[in-house]
């Protein structure tokens, strides 16, 4: 497998994170999204006409869009079958719903970050407003999940790719001037995601401390 990758992209990071969780190694091809704007070159558009990262190439076939790549990897390479609960229609639908939400976070909080940090001609103000609206929804969902003893976005004992899909835009939100202090339940969930075995850091996303030893 080949991953077309840009180190500072939250969308690429969620794929790298999941590859690390699954213990898969891929050939990584660096694409200079910023400042080189390599995603807009004819050579790259020939690979992905949408001009977006990441792109996963599997035996000559191309998968674009991070949520699609996460879904493919979970279905093809997750021996535990927990990361995408395909066998349970309701949980699979909830997973798909939060995957979509992850895409919306990338398109709002993630855009605010790109506008400010990479000086891209994007509307940071409206992106931030939408990002905050979505973060309130996420925080509320996670607060009530905690009350029901649940750690993850989709009800169930283990994290799903929905958690990974939403993670980067939230973890990097401060770079788009969305203050995380307003979303305490989301901040606690960030810690839990960082404790998933296989977690890898990126610039702006640092490891947290190990969980407290379990009382016997």
């Amino acid at each position: 497998m080949k991953l077309y990758n840009y180190e500072l992209s939250g969308e690429c990071y969620k794929v790298r994170f999941f590859l690390s969780v699954l213990g898969l190694s891929v050939e990584s091809i660096s694409v200079d999204e910023y400042p080189g704007l390599e995603v807009q070159t004819p050579a790259f558009l020939a690979i992905n006409p949408a001009g977006t990262l990441p792109v996963l190439e599997v035996e000559g076939q191309v998968i674009a869009e991070p949520q699609a790549i996460l879904t493919y990897l979970a279905l093809a390479h997750d021996p535990t079958s927990t990361w995408y609960p395909a066998g349970d229609p309701m949980r699979a639908a909830q997973c798909a719903q939060w995957l979509d939400f992850g895409g919306k976070l990338d398109a709002s909080a993630g855009v605010a970050r790109r506008a400010l940090g990479m000086f891209m001609p994007l509307d940071a103000g409206s992106a931030r407003l939408e990002g905050r609206r979505l973060m309130r929804i996420l925080d509320e969902h996670l607060w009530f999940a905690e009350r029901q003893g649940r750690d993850w976005l989709v009800p169930g004992p283990a994290p799903t790719i929905a958690d990974l899909a939403c993670f980067p835009a939230v973890a990097l939100a401060e770079e788009g001037e969305i203050a995380l202090a307003d979303y305490p339940a989301a901040r606690r969930w960030l810690d839990r995601v960082k404790r998933i075995p296989g977690f890898i850091p990126m610039s702006g996303v640092f490891p947290t401390s190990p969980a407290a030893p379990q009382e016997n």
Partner: peptide, 28 residues
């Protein structure tokens, strides 16, 4: 400045009061 349930072990809560930023955490 926080709820008790905001402070699980090994977490640092980001609080604020009268403009002062606070780091709030529960030790083991």
């Amino acid at each position: 400045v926080a709820s008790s349930h905001d402070l699980p072990l090994r977490h640092v809560y980001h609080g604020q009061l009268w403009g002062q930023e606070l780091a709030i955490w529960r030790a083991d």
